[in-house]
Design a protein around this nucleic acid. Structure first.
Length: 359
DNA sequence: TACGCGTGGGC
DNA sequence: TGCCCAAGCGT
């Protein structure tokens, strides 16, 4: 049964009037005059936006493009500087792949991104979504993006009740069937904007929706219930201890986590392993350990973490434990959020210990 | 294919 | 409060 419904005309008309301004975008009126965005900006923003809100990305995009205005500048950056600049944004493999990709494009492609999905997919950190987004948005190439927004919009327009992720390929085909014959970049951004502002997961704004007359789910009164999703298992809770080691001159001991795995490549406090029961206190060095009362609670993608904090003074430590970072060089913003929480507890204790009334 | 991988905001 | 969610990718 051929599907004759098409929403691209309504969507583009709506987008021309309601496109949200973002620092990495070229507005539809300028795009209609032939202007296109900087592919470096499109790539950087799309990687930052993977599983991440526009609000969270804003500051990071500004910081990156100010500090590294061209992809060649990013390619020349130190690993530690890029990881520090990414700290707090999460999914740190993105930052490692970002740098790999920048260096490859700079060294092998003369700083120019490929224009096809097939070639883009070969680059580190660029998967099916990001390849399609760069093709459509940066080059106005014919590519259909499929992200969470598009999945939701298609599931509702066509009242697809099969649950995700099983329904993904069906939704991909529907999204492809809706592509217009021009303005691919505007169309991609239009569907995603609709999903982000009108066709939202909750508190839908159907009264403002330009395609409501064509929406099967709305007609059936089931739009808020779609898309169906297979339920996720409950997160377990893990427990551990973080060790903050302070030298008399105020320097702090930090360790670089291995590139693979959780918080890979990030600067962290030395920790016990994180297990399903309270960790035994196994001090990494012999010192005057002091247990702090407050405990860090943090939730990762697939587990909760309860992290006790212990504090000690020491003048030296074995190099395999980490390296002292001087008070002048220490920047808590370079730590991942869970480790920033540890510092927020430890620094109060250090402050109290050093206050005049204590001495 | 299914799982590992962060974080902050909303309700 | 605890759960869901956000412009996914790599393995």
């Amino acid at each position: 049964m051929p599907n004759k419904v098409n929403i691209s005309t309504e969507l583009l008309t709506w987008y021309d009037a309601h496109a949200r301004e973002m620092p990495w975008r070229v507005p539809p009126q300028a795009r209609l005059r032939g202007e296109l965005p900087d592919p470096y900006h499109v790539w950087l923003s799309e990687v930052m936006l993977q599983q991440t809100t526009v609000a969270a990305v804003g500051k990071y995009f500004h910081d990156f493009t100010t500090r590294w205005p061209r992809i060649q500048d990013l390619a020349a950056a130190q690993d530690a500087d890029v990881m520090a600049a990414w700290a707090g944004l999460g999914y740190y493999a993105r930052a490692r792949n970002l740098l790999k990709c920048a260096r490859f494009v700079t060294s092998n492609l003369n700083g120019a991104f490929p224009k096809t999905e097939r070639e883009l997919m070969k680059l580190p950190g660029i998967g099916p979504y990001t390849a399609a987004a760069i093709t459509a948005i940066a080059f106005d190439g014919r590519a259909s993006v499929l992200d969470g927004n598009v999945e939701r919009v298609m599931a509702r327009i066509f009242a697809i009740e099969n649950p995700l992720p099983g329904a993904k390929e069906e939704l991909r085909a529907l999204a492809l069937s809706q592509m217009p014959n021009s303005r691919y970049g505007d169309y991609a951004q239009a569907v995603m904007d609709l999903g982000a502002t009108i066709c939202t997961p909750r508190r839908l704004q159907c009264a403002q929706c330009p395609i409501r007359p064509k929406c099967r789910a709305h007609a059936q009164g089931i739009a808020p219930d779609l898309p169906n999703k297979t339920p996720k298992p409950k997160k377990p809770t893990r427990h551990g201890i973080a060790y903050v080691i302070r030298r008399d001159d105020g320097a702090l001991l930090l360790t670089r986590r291995p590139d693979r795995g959780l918080l890979g490549g990030m600067l962290c406090w030395p920790c016990t392993d994180w297990g399903d029961v309270d960790a035994a206190h196994r001090p990494p060095i012999s010192a005057d350990w002091q247990a702090l009362n407050a405990e860090v609670r943090h939730t990762f993608t697939h587990f909760h973490l309860h992290l006790k904090v212990m504090l000690a003074n020491a003048e030296t430590a074995p190099s395999d434990l980490g390296q002292f970072v001087t008070l002048r060089e220490f920047n808590p913003d370079a730590l991942p959020s869970v480790m920033q929480k540890v510092w927020n507890i430890a620094k109060h204790q250090i402050g109290a210990h050093n206050s005049p009334k204590e001495t």
